[in-house]
Computed example of a mutant assay.
Amino acid sequence: MTDHVEVTGRGASHVVPDLVIVRARVQSDAKDVASALTESSSRTAAALQAASDHGIEARDRRTDDVGIHPRHDNNGRKVIGYTAYQAFRLTVRDRDRVGDLLQALAGAAGDALAVDGIEMAADQTDEAVAAARDAAFEDARTRAAQFARLAGTELGKVIHIHEGGVADQIPRPMYARSADMAGSMPIEGGTQAISTTVTVRWELA
């Protein structure tokens, strides 16, 4: 078998977040399951329609968790009603419109709306992913060359490459202050790391 060295390198490219992710939910109470689900569904539909009216495209509107659970009296024994909820996620491509969007959501869903959080994100462009791969390969090559020198030889040709995957690391989350905020909502974000690992095997000369 040909002598070889195999090394895993890590690399990242840093991009400025250009998207805002709004995570929200609609929660409705009713005496029976059907009414709670109907009310939650209706208000969620209204909120999503409001998002659409404010320029959030279909690809940027996504529903997440949906559920229902009973509500009990103060003694925790008797069921006095049910709470249904529907969570959704909106991707906002113009962050200056976040405040107006939150106001529109609140107007559509009323006091059933809860904003779970707001965070910055960035598109994983082909250029950013390629830069992360290049950095990971260079890291692996540098390590492998060092090992080869310690063994008194040099690196030969690459005989195998395996990418460990691209990981999207989102910076600190930014939470909404209130759902009835008017106007633009200032949101700041640092850089976001698009990272990956690459495992490379070289022949030893």
Rank of each mutant, 00 (worst) to 15 (best):
E154Y: 03
H14Y: 15
E119M: 08
G152A: 08
G189C: 10
R61F: 09
M185Q: 02
A12V: 04
S35C: 08
W202Y: 08
S52T: 02
Q192G: 02
P173Q: 06
D65G: 12
H72Y: 15
H54T: 04
A112H: 07
S40I: 05
A104D: 09
R89C: 05
D73W: 05
A132E: 13
P186E: 12
D60C: 06
M185V: 09
I68T: 13
Y82Q: 02
D123Y: 02
L102G: 06
R43W: 08
V26D: 09
A144N: 13
D60F: 01
E203N: 10
R71L: 14
A34Y: 05
S195R: 07
V66Y: 12
P186Q: 08
I80W: 02
R77V: 15
I56C: 03
D100M: 10
P186S: 05
M181L: 09
A106G: 13
T125N: 07
V33L: 14
V5K: 05
S41G: 15
N75E: 14
D53K: 08
R62F: 04
A47V: 11
V158L: 09
D123E: 06
I170K: 11
L37V: 12
P173D: 08
R71W: 05
A24E: 04
D65Y: 07
D139Q: 07
D64V: 03
I170R: 07
